[in-house]
Design a protein around this nucleic acid. Structure first.
Lengths: 128, 128
DNA sequence: ACGATTGTACTACTTTGCTATTACAGTGGT
DNA sequence: ACCACTGTAATAGCAAAGTAGTACAATCGT
């Protein structure tokens, strides 16, 4: 079940987009899987259908969904594409992160160190 | 000299804030350094004084500046605080990055790998 | 062929973020 | 004490983002 936090600063359509993208990229929504219809999902989440439409259309533009007028939206991502798509997503996020951090005058060493330290601590917490 | 890209998607006040913060944190603007007055900087950059005021006030709120009504804004960051402040900034950015990436289902290994690879490639480019 | 369901397109309203304008109040040098 | 400088505060204008409402067109099952 998808969840929306209405009070959040990140807009509703953005929250939805991330969640759906994750489910597609992780294989939980396989290729040719039919998405809930715009109106169905809208009434489930108690938000405007147009917001759902926006999300679906954007995901279509990014190559994750395909629309068939009259019958619904379908997942488009083939299993073979999943790897490269995941890599591309990660690359984008990483590039943005690096540029922002470098902009603040940090060195690559500092970057790697704090990141790996945080990840170690995180995995320790997760196991506890 | 501070530079503003008027056509950029990131708002003017945000561009300014980042640049000034960098100069303070890197020590280029030492403690007790007097900033250009709101109106001076505004006329130099050909933008509205109120935008500068907003930047200064926010930086004051984050503990980088101090205002003295009638005489100007002054850098507040002591040399001893620079280290911890820098670390804190980096930690915030890193946490946000990690949470967004984990949200997309990536493993710590993938993360470290792409990051270090990108950094290596970057340093190679910078030297060329 | 019909009716229910699907996506689509257009419009409009509301809110928010950003910037601009103006008038006010405190400080400091001379 | 004055005057030119400083920050402050309050207001308004503008554009963009986000969401909502309504009418339309294509599909599919029966």
């Amino acid at each position: 079940m998808l969840k929306i936090d209405a009070g959040s600063a990140v807009p509703v359509y953005e929250q939805l987009k991330r969640q759906i993208k994750l489910r597609i990229v992780s294989g939980r929504y396989p290729s040719d899987h039919r998405m809930l219809s715009i109106r169905q999902l809208a009434s489930e989440l108690t938000i405007n259908p147009n917001t759902i439409a926006k999300v679906y259309r954007q995901l279509e533009g990014e190559g994750f969904l395909m629309s068939k007028t009259g019958s619904g939206f379908f997942v488009k991502l083939e299993k073979e594409q999943m790897g490269t798509t995941r890599r591309k997503l990660l690359a984008e996020l990483t590039d943005e992160f690096i540029s922002r951090v470098v902009e603040l005058g940090f060195t690559p060493d500092e970057l790697i160190n704090t990141l790996s330290e945080k990840l170690e601590r995180k995995s320790a917490d997760d196991q506890t």
